[in-house]
Computed example of a mutant assay.
Amino acid sequence: MTFGFAPSAASAAASGLLSTGSANRCTRMLEPAEWAAAGIPLLRSPREVVDGLHERHRPAPGTAVVAVLDHEERLAASASFTPRAAPADGWELRNALLAHLRRVVPHDLRRRAPVRTAVLLYCRDGDERWTEEDGAWMWGLRDACTLHGLRCGAYITLTRVGWQVLGEGRGGRRPSTAVAPHTMTGAGRMQAPLSLRSGTGGLDMPRRTAAR
Protein backbone atom coordinates (compact mmCIF):
# COMPACT_ATOMS: atom_id res chain seq x y z
CA MET A 1 0.00 0.00 0.00
CA THR A 2 1.14 3.56 -0.55
CA PHE A 3 2.25 5.76 2.34
CA GLY A 4 1.68 9.46 1.84
CA PHE A 5 1.32 12.54 3.95
CA ALA A 6 -1.51 15.02 4.19
CA PRO A 7 -0.52 18.69 4.60
CA SER A 8 0.92 19.46 8.04
CA ALA A 9 0.30 22.53 10.19
CA ALA A 10 3.80 22.43 11.67
CA SER A 11 5.15 25.02 9.23
CA ALA A 12 2.22 27.31 9.94
CA ALA A 13 2.85 27.02 13.66
CA ALA A 14 6.52 27.80 13.19
CA SER A 15 5.72 30.91 11.16
CA GLY A 16 3.35 32.22 13.83
CA LEU A 17 0.25 32.08 11.64
CA LEU A 18 -1.69 29.94 14.12
CA SER A 19 -3.29 30.94 17.40
CA THR A 20 -1.71 29.86 20.69
CA GLY A 21 -4.25 27.05 21.10
CA SER A 22 -3.67 25.78 17.58
CA ALA A 23 0.09 25.97 18.02
CA ASN A 24 -0.14 23.93 21.22
CA ARG A 25 -2.15 21.28 19.41
CA CYS A 26 0.55 21.15 16.74
CA THR A 27 3.18 20.41 19.37
CA ARG A 28 1.06 17.58 20.74
CA MET A 29 1.35 15.46 17.61
CA LEU A 30 4.09 13.37 16.05
CA GLU A 31 5.20 13.68 12.45
CA PRO A 32 5.78 10.39 10.58
CA ALA A 33 9.56 10.87 10.73
CA GLU A 34 9.42 11.31 14.52
CA TRP A 35 7.28 8.20 14.90
CA ALA A 36 9.60 6.16 12.69
CA ALA A 37 12.61 7.30 14.74
CA ALA A 38 10.96 6.38 18.07
CA GLY A 39 11.91 2.70 17.87
CA ILE A 40 8.34 1.37 17.93
CA PRO A 41 8.53 -2.46 18.10
CA LEU A 42 7.32 -4.29 15.02
CA LEU A 43 4.36 -6.63 15.27
CA ARG A 44 5.26 -10.19 14.28
CA SER A 45 1.85 -10.71 12.70
CA PRO A 46 0.00 -7.42 12.23
CA ARG A 47 -2.73 -9.08 10.16
CA GLU A 48 -3.65 -11.37 13.07
CA VAL A 49 -3.78 -8.43 15.44
CA VAL A 50 -5.94 -6.36 13.10
CA ASP A 51 -8.27 -9.24 12.26
CA GLY A 52 -8.65 -10.13 15.94
CA LEU A 53 -9.43 -6.61 17.09
CA HIS A 54 -11.79 -5.99 14.18
CA GLU A 55 -13.67 -9.21 14.87
CA ARG A 56 -14.07 -8.38 18.55
CA HIS A 57 -14.98 -4.68 18.33
CA ARG A 58 -16.38 -4.15 14.79
CA PRO A 59 -15.26 -0.49 14.82
CA ALA A 60 -17.12 2.11 12.80
CA PRO A 61 -15.38 5.25 11.48
CA GLY A 62 -14.41 7.44 14.41
CA THR A 63 -13.86 4.50 16.76
CA ALA A 64 -10.54 3.82 18.50
CA VAL A 65 -9.54 0.38 19.77
CA VAL A 66 -6.67 0.28 22.28
CA ALA A 67 -5.23 -3.14 23.07
CA VAL A 68 -2.56 -4.46 25.42
CA LEU A 69 -0.40 -7.36 24.21
CA ASP A 70 1.82 -9.55 26.38
CA HIS A 71 5.41 -10.48 25.52
CA GLU A 72 4.17 -13.27 23.23
CA GLU A 73 1.87 -10.88 21.37
CA ARG A 74 -1.24 -12.35 22.94
CA LEU A 75 -4.09 -10.01 23.73
CA ALA A 76 -4.34 -9.27 27.44
CA ALA A 77 -7.17 -6.72 27.22
CA SER A 78 -8.76 -4.23 24.86
CA ALA A 79 -11.27 -1.40 24.85
CA SER A 80 -13.04 0.52 22.10
CA PHE A 81 -14.45 4.01 22.38
CA THR A 82 -15.48 7.00 20.30
CA PRO A 83 -13.76 10.26 21.29
CA ARG A 84 -15.82 13.40 21.19
CA ALA A 85 -15.76 15.37 17.96
CA ALA A 86 -13.15 18.13 18.31
CA PRO A 87 -9.96 19.33 16.62
CA ALA A 88 -7.29 16.68 17.06
CA ASP A 89 -5.41 17.29 20.30
CA GLY A 90 -2.88 14.76 21.53
CA TRP A 91 -3.40 15.75 25.15
CA GLU A 92 -7.13 14.98 25.11
CA LEU A 93 -6.58 11.76 23.16
CA ARG A 94 -3.87 10.75 25.66
CA ASN A 95 -6.30 11.25 28.53
CA ALA A 96 -8.98 9.15 26.81
CA LEU A 97 -6.52 6.33 26.08
CA LEU A 98 -5.14 6.42 29.61
CA ALA A 99 -8.61 6.29 31.14
CA HIS A 100 -9.48 3.15 29.17
CA LEU A 101 -6.13 1.49 29.85
CA ARG A 102 -6.65 2.03 33.58
CA ARG A 103 -10.04 0.35 33.37
CA VAL A 104 -8.88 -2.81 31.63
CA VAL A 105 -5.34 -3.48 32.93
CA PRO A 106 -3.29 -2.52 36.01
CA HIS A 107 -0.27 -0.31 35.41
CA ASP A 108 3.28 -1.65 35.15
CA LEU A 109 5.02 1.39 36.60
CA ARG A 110 6.88 -0.67 39.21
CA ARG A 111 8.71 -2.69 36.58
CA ARG A 112 12.21 -1.69 35.58
CA ALA A 113 11.30 -2.03 31.91
CA PRO A 114 7.95 -2.42 30.12
CA VAL A 115 6.86 -5.99 29.46
CA ARG A 116 3.49 -5.42 27.83
CA THR A 117 2.83 -3.38 24.71
CA ALA A 118 -0.12 -1.17 23.86
CA VAL A 119 -1.26 -0.86 20.24
CA LEU A 120 -3.93 1.38 18.78
CA LEU A 121 -6.29 0.67 15.91
CA TYR A 122 -8.14 3.78 14.72
CA CYS A 123 -10.99 3.50 12.25
CA ARG A 124 -11.49 6.72 10.28
CA ASP A 125 -12.71 8.25 7.06
CA GLY A 126 -10.33 9.30 4.30
CA ASP A 127 -7.51 7.36 2.72
CA GLU A 128 -4.32 5.80 4.03
CA ARG A 129 -2.23 8.97 4.06
CA TRP A 130 -1.00 10.34 7.38
CA THR A 131 -3.07 13.18 8.78
CA GLU A 132 -2.66 15.58 11.69
CA GLU A 133 -5.30 13.54 13.54
CA ASP A 134 -3.05 10.50 13.17
CA GLY A 135 -0.17 12.55 14.56
CA ALA A 136 -2.25 13.49 17.59
CA TRP A 137 -3.17 9.83 18.21
CA MET A 138 0.50 8.86 17.96
CA TRP A 139 1.46 11.49 20.53
CA GLY A 140 -1.39 10.42 22.78
CA LEU A 141 -0.53 6.71 22.55
CA ARG A 142 3.14 7.28 23.31
CA ASP A 143 2.38 9.47 26.33
CA ALA A 144 -0.36 7.19 27.68
CA CYS A 145 2.00 4.22 27.50
CA THR A 146 4.67 6.09 29.44
CA LEU A 147 2.19 7.04 32.16
CA HIS A 148 0.87 3.46 32.43
CA GLY A 149 4.22 1.67 32.33
CA LEU A 150 3.66 0.08 28.92
CA ARG A 151 5.77 -0.13 25.79
CA CYS A 152 4.39 2.01 22.98
CA GLY A 153 3.42 -0.23 20.11
CA ALA A 154 2.01 0.10 16.61
CA TYR A 155 -0.48 2.70 15.45
CA ILE A 156 -2.82 1.18 12.87
CA THR A 157 -5.41 2.94 10.73
CA LEU A 158 -8.48 1.30 9.24
CA THR A 159 -9.96 3.16 6.27
CA ARG A 160 -12.04 2.49 3.15
CA VAL A 161 -8.95 1.18 1.33
CA GLY A 162 -7.95 -1.24 4.08
CA TRP A 163 -5.60 -1.16 7.05
CA GLN A 164 -2.00 -0.13 7.48
CA VAL A 165 0.60 0.11 10.22
CA LEU A 166 1.71 3.71 9.92
CA GLY A 167 5.43 4.22 9.63
CA GLU A 168 6.07 0.64 8.51
CA GLY A 169 4.43 0.36 5.10
CA ARG A 170 2.69 -2.90 6.06
CA GLY A 171 -1.02 -3.24 5.42
CA GLY A 172 -3.82 -5.03 3.61
CA ARG A 173 -7.16 -4.50 1.88
CA ARG A 174 -9.25 -6.46 4.40
CA PRO A 175 -10.72 -5.55 6.79
CA SER A 176 -11.72 -2.05 5.73
CA THR A 177 -14.54 0.41 6.21
CA ALA A 178 -15.90 -0.29 2.70
CA VAL A 179 -18.49 -2.63 4.23
CA ALA A 180 -20.29 -0.92 7.10
CA PRO A 181 -19.55 -2.80 10.36
CA HIS A 182 -21.82 -3.13 13.35
CA THR A 183 -21.92 0.37 14.82
CA MET A 184 -21.52 1.45 18.41
CA THR A 185 -23.02 4.83 19.20
CA GLY A 186 -21.47 6.83 22.03
CA ALA A 187 -20.45 3.78 24.05
CA GLY A 188 -17.22 1.95 24.57
CA ARG A 189 -16.77 -1.79 24.75
CA MET A 190 -14.20 -3.51 26.92
CA GLN A 191 -13.03 -7.06 26.47
CA ALA A 192 -11.65 -9.80 28.67
CA PRO A 193 -8.32 -11.43 27.68
CA LEU A 194 -8.23 -13.37 24.41
CA SER A 195 -5.46 -15.10 22.55
CA LEU A 196 -5.41 -13.79 18.99
CA ARG A 197 -3.71 -16.98 17.83
CA SER A 198 -5.85 -19.61 19.52
CA GLY A 199 -9.19 -17.91 18.96
CA THR A 200 -10.30 -18.80 22.49
CA GLY A 201 -11.19 -16.21 25.04
CA GLY A 202 -13.49 -14.65 27.52
CA LEU A 203 -16.75 -12.81 27.60
CA ASP A 204 -17.54 -9.19 26.84
CA MET A 205 -17.42 -6.96 29.88
CA PRO A 206 -20.26 -4.44 30.40
CA ARG A 207 -20.35 -1.47 28.09
CA ARG A 208 -19.36 1.87 29.51
CA THR A 209 -19.71 5.43 28.34
CA ALA A 210 -16.72 6.71 26.40
CA ALA A 211 -14.27 8.89 28.32
CA ARG A 212 -14.73 12.58 27.73
Rank of each mutant, 00 (worst) to 15 (best):
T2I: 08
A10D: 03
A12N: 09
A14R: 10
S15W: 04
S15P: 01
L18R: 10
L18I: 07
T20A: 15
G21L: 13
N24A: 15
R28Q: 09
P32Y: 11
E34Q: 15
E34A: 14
W35M: 09
A36Y: 11
R44M: 09
D51W: 05
H54Q: 02
A64I: 00
V68E: 00
E72C: 02
E73M: 05
R74F: 01
R74I: 01
L75G: 01
F81S: 00
P83C: 06
P87W: 00
A88M: 03
R94E: 13
A96F: 01
P106Y: 02
P106K: 03
V119G: 07
L120M: 06
G126M: 01
D127R: 08
E128A: 14
R129S: 14
E133K: 07
D134T: 05
A136T: 07
W139L: 08
G140P: 06
G140T: 06
R142E: 09
T146W: 14
G153K: 04
A154W: 12
V161H: 10
G162Y: 13
G171R: 03
R173E: 13
P181H: 08
M184V: 08
A187L: 15
G188P: 00
L194S: 08
T200N: 15
T200K: 15
T200R: 15
L203R: 15
R208F: 11
